[in-house]
Computed example of a mutant assay.
Amino acid sequence: MSSASKDALPLRHPVRVETITLRPMTFELAAPQSDFATIARHLGVASLESLKASYSLSRNGDRVKLEGKIGAALHQICVVTLEAFPVALTVPVKLDFLPEAEIAAAAGADQGEGEIDIEVLLNEEDPPEPIVDGVIDLGAITLEFLALALDPYPRKPGASFDELAPETAPESPFAALARLKGEE
């Protein structure tokens, strides 16, 4: 993500890595009501009523561990009725961070000269996220995880997509030909 696109995020809460200690530190984040409309547009939802996040960060050398949860109340548009309906979400978050240079060095060491080798291992932890310019933006993390938790095809409780009653099947062109042939 470029720095220009990060500047466009409607929720920012940068934390300098050097301020994070070995002992877990708690960070509380609450979106101001004045930003609700902008955040709702960013997420593609009808409205946002509340957005709070609580994170615990700890640092061991260059590695930062983040755990927490996001709570949000919002309205999404039902794909069946096109009506807004309330949604309450609680999203767990767990990430590891390493400086960008260390991730790039590790990726370079894994690959030979000019070769691309992709190995997918199941049931393994996600690779660490990069620490860019010594900062972790809790606002960006909050928006990213909330966006991922949203139902891409929200359906209002009780809404059902009823099939239209089947019309009488159109007449086969061969049946029409047979009828014409019989009239001769």
Rank of each mutant, 00 (worst) to 15 (best):
M1F: 13
S3N: 14
S5G: 01
K6T: 08
L11A: 04
L11W: 07
L11C: 02
P14W: 00
V17C: 13
I20W: 02
M25I: 12
T26G: 10
F27K: 01
F27D: 05
F27W: 10
E28N: 13
A31Q: 04
A31H: 01
F36R: 01
I39W: 04
A40L: 01
R41A: 12
H42K: 01
H42R: 02
L43D: 04
G44E: 07
V45C: 14
A46K: 00
L48T: 08
K52V: 03
Y55C: 07
S58K: 09
R59H: 12
N60G: 12
G61N: 10
G61T: 09
K65L: 14
K69W: 13
I70L: 02
H75L: 10
Q76L: 04
C78F: 06
V80Q: 07
L82H: 09
E83V: 01
E83C: 02
E83T: 08
V91T: 09
P92H: 04
L95W: 05
D96A: 11
D96L: 12
F97K: 02
P99W: 07
I103L: 15
A105W: 04
A109V: 00
E113M: 08
D117Q: 08
E119V: 10
V120D: 05
L122K: 10
L122A: 15
N123Q: 11
N123L: 06
E124Y: 09
D126V: 11
P127D: 12
P127T: 09
P127H: 08
P130K: 00
V132G: 04
G134Y: 03
T142F: 03
L148V: 11
L150D: 03
D151W: 03
P152G: 05
P152Y: 06
A159G: 11
S160H: 14
F161C: 08
E163P: 12
L164T: 13
E167M: 06
T168V: 15
P170W: 02
E171L: 09
E171N: 00
S172N: 15
A178I: 04
R179N: 15
L180I: 04
E183C: 02
E183K: 11
E184F: 12
